[in-house]
Design a protein around this nucleic acid. Structure first.
Lengths: 254, 254
DNA sequence: CGTATGATTGATGCAGATCAAACACAGTGG
DNA sequence: CCACTGTGTTTGATCTGCATCAATCATACG
């Protein structure tokens, strides 16, 4: 992989520069957006716990879901039994878009932590949008962001070596939390190495080795007890690590 | 890769069973949908030729595009110069969704053949949707399909070995053409091996070897002159080939 | 015809998969 | 309290699928 490497002169983006498209729609932040959605839609609120499934592949589509707290994984299941984590959802994300086209959800949405989701009937949402055009903008922005991010994911697995993929994964996680008003410098991975590996297209052993390497290079740190909490003192260091992985050769001397 | 392989007993879907979600919204077919869109939106029609760029990453968002004929690739470009084909668009597909959230397009859309695209101002589209709710359904269905397909792509690169990825790519291409009323048994790849490889996360040599293998096994055929045209007598054979690649071991004897 | 671009095929090397063993920690129950 | 068990993690050794390097061939075009 990483076969396309045109004159790579390591001009990586310095530290916290957010990539284009990652900021909230119309300059609005996540908290304000959630407040607006809560007021406009008066959604049914539902508390979920680790392992709860909000919808499953094949189930009849009817609702969209807005994640107010906690976090979810989206799992695709193929006819022949392959299982693939295809997305992670954080505070402010919407769930269930995949069901609109086919009338049935195409994936499973599984809670990875305790949290609260808001249930919104798609029909009711459309009705509300008809009298409140700003809502439609929010809906479309959420779908658009999902499409753009899915493409970034594909780019990651297609062009980055294993170590860089793990680093980029942590960078995205930390940035996402920060953008949404949560601490991004100390994140609790509520996924096993196997789940992370599945999401990134590598084995759990490779994930473990990559994390060890990142810790050895002081790009990340591990919390006192257990290896589930990851400290990220500087997000820029993760980006720099990715670039280092892409660097063609040491080119020592000359 | 393909490390998750739970009791894989090769119960592959027989022949032409379309996977859930691949049929058109509300049972409508592509031709009818295009007709409706053309009548309702009266879009500006624009002829494009190979290599034309309909929009580019960073360009200010304003229009969505509906592909009436021809075909496009969607290319993502990272800050450090990596280039990734993240999608292919066929007749009836929409282009430009990635621009809604950030106000700027996130990718390049490049024509791979002569064709016609319809230009629709996003603002005007929303206005029309307000008085024609069916249009909004079509829009959402198109976005939903894109999200679902992007996930399938990620699953492909994460769980399939190189040969199977190429086979699955051809299967998808053939099925998509068939669904949209075009011949699916003889497709002209208007992409180089390098472009296909980039899209599938492998080198051009691996693509070439995979195609040679598929031809040797009579799963595909090459047209008389040149290796750009691929004959696909039976789409099911491609699915079967994918399953064969996933089979744990030859298990000869017993 | 010569040149250029893309495709095929072979030889070799390596990143990451697979196999294997030891370790850490949280329950659980005596 | 500690032994016991199960689940997840780490780390090492080995193997292999695919990348890389390289040479030849095919088709298109000036």
């Amino acid at each position: 992989m990483l076969n396309t490497n045109p004159t790579n002169t390591a001009q990586f983006s310095p530290s916290l520069t957010l990539p284009a498209g990652s900021r909230e729609c119309a300059g609005r932040n996540t908290m304000d957006t959630l407040k607006l959605l809560g007021e406009q839609l008066k959604p049914q609120r539902r508390v979920v716990h680790t392992g709860d499934t909000i919808y499953q592949a094949g189930e009849r589509f009817g609702n969209l879901y807005i994640l107010n707290s906690g976090f979810f994984k989206i799992v695709n299941l193929s006819a022949d039994g392959r299982e693939q984590v295809v997305g992670l959802k954080f505070r402010g994300d919407w769930l269930g878009f995949d069901g609109i086209a086919g009338g049935r959800y195409a994936c499973d949405a599984v809670a990875m932590d305790t949290g609260e989701i808001w249930v919104v009937s798609y029909e009711a949402l459309l009705a509300t949008c008809a009298v409140q055009p700003e809502l439609l903008q929010l809906l479309h922005a959420a779908m658009s962001r999902e499409i753009a991010h899915d493409r970034d994911s594909l780019m990651s697995v297609c062009t980055l070596p294993a170590d860089a993929r793990v680093a980029d994964f942590l960078r995205y996680w930390a940035q996402t939390l920060a953008e949404r008003g949560m601490r991004g410098d100390e994140i609790t991975l509520r996924m096993t190495r196997a789940e992370i590996g599945n999401y990134l297209g590598m084995t759990l052993e490779s994930v473990s080795r990559a994390l060890s390497r990142l810790a050895r290079d002081n790009v990340i740190g591990f919390a006192t007890k257990g290896r589930r909490d990851v400290q990220i003192p500087d997000v820029g260091a993760l980006s720099a690590f990715v670039q280092r992985c892409l660097a063609p050769a040491p080119t020592m001397l000359q």
